[in-house]
Design a protein around this nucleic acid. Structure first.
Lengths: 222, 222
DNA sequence: GTCTATAGCCAGATAGAC
DNA sequence: GTCTATCTGGCTATAGAC
């Protein structure tokens, strides 16, 4: 009899379908958004489940109802954060434009995007360094960027004499270093260059074009 | 009588002098070294006092005997880590060589140094981002790098037509970005470029000269 | 100065009412 | 699904013997 009740509840859920799923996703989503804020500000160890619950405006027990444990919740946040960053990196690698255009577009878009999500790079880099196996988990995901196409395009432009010789690995790291670092090193930059929030923001703004020029100056054959 | 014994013990310590001080510094130093390892690997929140004690091969209570609390111990580690990094940054700013030589020397020395302390950049950047007031504490220290001299040297070489125009802030950030980022982003670089520990090390090795060339190509008037 | 034992607290997780 | 109340373990910090 108990078995039958259990089954019919499942049937009911199945029939209700969409609506039930939507409700579930609403609360689940609230939790995920709150967890993003807290985890990205405090890190895995520094974050408190209570703080996440407060931020979401719900009860602490609900976190465990939807995501069994703190660790599982963290993994969900991390994956979702990386899924925001990966397409940004992909953009430069997988379209058909010239290397010069790739660099210009990437730099502009990346800095624009990150000015809206300033905690993202820090969060991802910190946790990748803490648990190196996380990256394995990400590599299996569809959409993990690959260097091959970028490399062949670059090599072709070098052999045609448009660009000076440079290794694809090195150039790629240079590009992301120049773009990501200002966000990772915000406190240091503000301290060195005596910048307040306003002048730091101006500094980032001008990098949207400055960085691309800097790179292209270096690699373009004169 | 007890009082007298106590006093004479202090006298004895005083007379032994150097030797006693050496012993004390030995234990204190052991703790600090162990704390560096653990804090740099796990961060403030992730580190455990027990693990630090194990690493130092002593008792957990001793940590509190020498450094009242976990926080005080952490601050000691952080300061000592930053004091390793700051002179590296200072080197490029405060000598009298040409901008080109500054960049060449800095890049070579910095990468060489960091290959011996690979956890250092990550640790410092992470904690600076977590507690922004830490940087205030550091700015008061003697030896906190200043940009003025670098800027005036740069501007002079630009006006003499040796270098293309560029803001000192922007160039400085570019230089440290290109040098520090490969350490901050190690897991990501290894994943993107399919590198193992050996090829990653080769990659860093070639950056000792590649990075300087990349920068100089960009700013030197052709 | 160095250890053992333990106090005291706090955070993650769960039981169980509704 | 959502809440309150509570268990449980682990961690910092200290008391106290030696």
């Amino acid at each position: 009899m108990l078995f039958f009740v259990s089954l019919s509840t499942k049937w009911l859920n199945y029939l209700v379908g969409m609506k039930n799923t939507d409700n579930k996703e609403t609360t689940e989503h609230q939790i995920l958004e709150a967890a993003k804020v807290v985890f990205q500000a405090k890190g895995m160890e520094g974050a408190r489940m209570q703080e996440i619950a407060d931020q979401a405006g719900i009860n602490k027990a609900m976190l465990h109802y939807y995501y069994r444990s703190k660790e599982k919740l963290f993994e969900a946040v991390f994956k979702s954060a990386f899924l925001l960053l990966a397409p940004q990196l992909n953009a430069i690698l997988n379209d058909d434009s010239s290397i010069e255009d790739k660099i210009k577009n990437f730099t502009f878009n990346y800095v624009t995007f990150m000015m809206k999500h300033p905690y993202l790079p820090n969060f991802i880099f910190q946790e990748l360094n803490r648990k190196e196996d996380f990256i394995q988990l990400l590599k299996q995901n569809t959409g993990f960027p690959k260097l091959e196409k970028f490399k062949s395009k670059l090599d072709s432009e070098i052999s045609r004499g448009i660009l000076n010789p440079i290794e694809a690995d090195q150039l790629f790291v240079n590009i992301i270093a120049l773009n990501i670092f200002p966000f990772l090193g915000k406190p240091l930059i503000k301290a060195f260059a005596n910048k307040d929030d306003k002048t730091y923001k101006d500094f980032l703004e001008s990098r949207k074009t400055e960085v691309a020029n800097f790179i292209i100056n270096s690699i373009k054959r004169q």
